[in-house]
Structure formats: structure tokens, C-alpha cells
Design a binder for these strands. Structure first.
Lengths: 154, 154
DNA sequence: ACGTTATAGTTACATATGAAACTAATTGCA
DNA sequence: TGCAATTAGTTTCATATGTAACTATAACGT
């Protein structure tokens, strides 16, 4: 009986995936590259993780959200949000109080310090997004928007 | 002096990011959703991580690669590859020997057991990819390919 | 009213990941 | 040659992340 740990002979019957043409793989590479480029702009400067930045971004847009609502808006799970909020509150970047009618819920908002960071980071993030989109012509940009809308729908 | 941990008043001068229209965020959500759907197919069944699967996929296509070459092909860092290989070799899914002329280098290949898993998982992965692409019409699919080619170039 | 169920959020644990230090082997060049 | 610099790969350590269990509060049904 052959040793199962020996290399197997390669037959033509296998149909290996070509990672470089495989959509999920390509999306993963692109997403990581882009997100990392943005994160590089603020991580060391503000000691701010991607998770924390996303929480700050939604709190900049929607005021008085609860942690659960932040989780919905960021598509992060509640544990990740809880931890990000703990750090942000500790760092004085987010203010947390409890909801008057429901003591389980928190009511969250950026502090002055939080806004200062937001107002510095948001334009950098937008600039990085423009850099990526600049690789495409106007027509491609429109298609990309439409395609992402469809793929992300529901 | 105002308490810096108090919520800051919201002025119109802030320009918050709209995450749901922000390309990096949308890419991240899409990539995670798609990759997770595929991983769900094989993770429990084979006790195989995404990292390990990617290593197996390149070994199915390119025979006798070294660990460094696997890292290049998968765009993973060498530590991740080293760990994935340790598990795959231990599980009898990958065969590792040392290169004749350079004792630092490993020469990697799938075992018979590795091929069996590959031949089961690869079609499932392709099926999931087709499910995603089925949300787009033929024209959109072509644009998507072209756009990803451009964004991933260099 | 009161016990069951659901919800908001945190904690604990186990696993994953990344950066840097480390070992071993090879290469380059004075 | 022989010694410094590179390269392949692993180990270590610190941090991140996900699942499940847990606490506290509120809502629901009888």
C-alpha cells in the first residue's frame, strides 16, 4: 500500500483553481490593499484601529446611536463594537451615557477630541478613495458603482 | 474649560464619511461576505482554514513550489504560509521535502489525501463564484473583470 | 403581577494574525 | 578563502477576532 504522505502523481483529471482569476480571491486582495493603505494614514498617528475608525465614522454621521445600532451600520459584530467603544471612551474620543428610558442602551457621540480626529482622518480616507478610483475612467467608475450596488444588495 | 469627555456639539462644518457609499468599506463587506460563504462549505467538513485552502489551491496548480513561492502566489506573508504548511503536512495533506541543491528550501506538493480534498472543494468554490456572478448580467461581468484587472494591476 | 423570553452589552476563552527576533543555509565580495 | 550580508523558514510574543457564556434590563403573555 502506498504511503499516503508521499507526493501524489499529478493527473490531468484535476481542475485546479486559478487564484489570480478567481473573483473571491481578487476581491480579497483588492479590499485588503485598499483598506491597509488608508489605515496606514491614521493607525500610528492616532493609535486607532480600522474597527475604531469605522465606529467613529458612523458616530460622526448619526448622533446618539446605541452600540447595537453602530454594529448594524458598520456590519461589525457587537463584540467588536463593544471593544472598540471601550477603547474610544477610555481615550476620551467617544462620550457614552445611558438611555433615559432603557438602562440597557447606551447613547453615543463623539467628543470634541473625537471630532478633531474625525475631521483630520475623513479627508485622508476620501483622498485614498480618489486615488484608487483614479485608475479607472469615468465609465468604469459608473459601472463599478452599479456592480457593487447589485452585489451588495440584500 | 469644557470637559473634553462631554459630547461635542455637532456643527455643520464636519463632513462625515458615508460608509455605505465609501468604496473601501463596500469592498470590505463584499469580500468578507463572499469569502465566508465559500469557507462555510469546507471549514467544518475538512477542518481547513481559508489560509490553508489557498495554499492547497496554489500547490494544485504549481508543483514543487517552495514556501516562499507559495507566499508570493497567495499574497500571504511567510509566517502565515509557514503555519498553514505545518498544519497541512501534519494532517498528511501536503508532502514536504528539502531541495537537493539548497537545504533551506522546501519542495511542496499535495498528497493523495490533499488531492481528494482539492477535487471536492474546488468545484464548490467555483459554484459559489458563479452564484455571485449570477447577480450580474453578461455586460456587467465583463466590466467587473476589466475593472478588477485595472485596480489590481501592479 | 409574574414568570418566560428577548435584548443590550460585556467578559472569557480559544484561535488567528502580524511584527520582530531567531536559526540555518547560501551568496557575494574583499 | 573567509566573513558580512541575504535568504528560507520557524518561533515568539503581543494583539486581534469570533463564539459562547454571562449580567442586567426590558418586553411579552397569561
Amino acid at each position: 500500500m502506498p504511503n499516503p504522505r508521499k507526493p501524489a502523481p499529478v493527473g490531468a483529471e484535476h481542475a485546479p483553481l486559478e487564484l489570480e482569476h478567481f473573483l473571491p480571491y481578487r476581491l480579497s486582495i483588492l479590499s485588503n490593499t485598499v483598506s491597509q493603505a488608508i489605515a496606514d494614514d491614521y493607525q500610528q498617528r492616532y493609535d486607532l484601529s480600522v474597527t475604531e475608525w469605522r465606529v467613529m465614522a458612523v458616530l460622526a454621521r448619526f448622533h446618539g446611536l446605541s452600540a447595537r445600532e453602530v454594529a448594524e451600520r458598520t456590519a461589525m459584530d457587537k463584540v467588536a463594537v463593544s471593544r472598540a467603544l471601550a477603547r474610544l471612551v477610555e481615550a476620551g474620543r467617544v462620550h457614552r451615557e445611558t438611555h433615559g428610558n432603557d438602562k440597557r442602551r447606551s447613547v453615543l457621540s463623539l467628543t470634541e477630541a473625537g471630532w478633531l480626529i474625525h475631521d483630520d482622518v475623513a479627508p485622508m480616507a476620501r483622498a485614498r478613495e480618489r486615488e484608487v478610483l483614479a485608475k479607472l475612467d469615468a465609465e468604469e467608475q459608473q459601472w463599478l458603482t452599479q456592480i457593487l450596488d447589485k452585489l451588495l444588495a440584500h
